[in-house]
């Protein structure tokens, strides 16, 4: 099977959809046109750049370059997690918690997947390592962002309730238990739904891409199944870690609710 290569003209045609959407948005006073165009331009530039970076990485396989690339991806994801929270933790904790949790879950799972399951040679072969890590980070980031946003938002809304429990002599852990479970659940719902719908309602992007790229469907499906398992594991572990650290950080050593540690909005 040969790949039908896309020309810039093909992409420009597709971009016409964004233009059309912007015109409609302007006509209907949705005030979305600016954001739409900025997002579309950003997406195009970012992806073209990463294409160049990947091309260079594939040509120069070296663990050092891989480590640098992975670090940049991790930091970008950490920033994204922070940006998506209405009332996240202030200061270095806000960035650190999400980033650390993503590091623990995504990196550990990617490394296990590369060394034990997929087994390319060398194990850090960028053609496998970068897409795997990217997908894990992207999904784990979602889970953590949703979980942390739910946790901090609910703690703020329900402070009377939490403190009421503390007043009766409950430990911090007991007082936040229900919110913590809710937050973890909220973070995991997207991936659970994605697994439920996979193949029935939606053809996952990675698999579609592989098939479009000319791979046999069954190979694409097997990789998609692997990815789904890894993503579920990564999102689950990452969200649990982040929400747990976050819930601990909401209280001090005297079991006081410390909402002053959240950003002021």
């Amino acid at each position: 099977m040969s790949i039908v290569s896309l020309t810039p003209f093909d992409l420009a045609l597709a971009a016409g959809l964004i233009v059309l959407l912007s015109i409609v948005s302007w006509a209907m006073h949705l005030q979305l046109e600016r954001q739409l165009i900025v997002a579309a331009v950003r997406m195009t530039v970012q992806l073209l750049l990463i294409g160049l970076v990947l091309k260079a990485l594939f040509a120069n396989v070296h663990p050092g370059w891989m480590a640098l690339m992975a670090t940049v991806m991790l930091l970008a994801a950490g920033r994204e997690v922070m940006g998506r929270q209405k009332r996240g933790f202030a200061g270095v904790w806000g960035f650190g918690m999400g980033t650390l949790s993503m590091f623990i879950s995504s990196f550990a799972i990617t490394i296990v997947a590369l060394t034990v399951i997929v087994g390319p040679d060398p194990w850090y072969e960028p053609q496998y390592a970068i897409p795997l890590l990217g997908m894990l980070l992207g999904n784990t980031m979602n889970g953590i962002a949703i979980g942390m946003d739910r946790l901090t938002h609910a703690a703020y809304e329900q402070r009377t309730l939490i403190e009421g429990r503390l007043m009766l002599g409950q430990s911090w852990s007991k007082a936040i238990e229900a919110l913590r479970s809710d937050s973890i659940r909220a973070g995991l719902i997207p991936i659970v739904n994605a697994m439920m719908a996979a193949g029935l309602v939606s053809l996952p992007g990675m698999m579609t891409g592989q098939i479009l790229g000319g791979n046999p469907p069954m190979e694409a499906v097997k990789y998609q199944i692997l990815i789904m398992f890894l993503i579920a594991g990564g999102t689950g572990l990452g969200t649990m870690t982040a929400v747990w650290i976050g819930s601990r950080r909401l209280f001090d050593e005297r079991h006081r609710l410390r909402l002053d540690r959240l950003k002021i909005k």
Partner: peptide, 20 residues
């Protein structure tokens, strides 16, 4: 004294009670 234990001994009845 661990804080939860302190609060069971020195108990605050707030103006607005909490029910979960």
């Amino acid at each position: 004294v661990p804080a939860p234990q302190w609060r069971r001994k020195v108990a605050l009845l707030p103006a607005e009670s909490a029910w979960w």
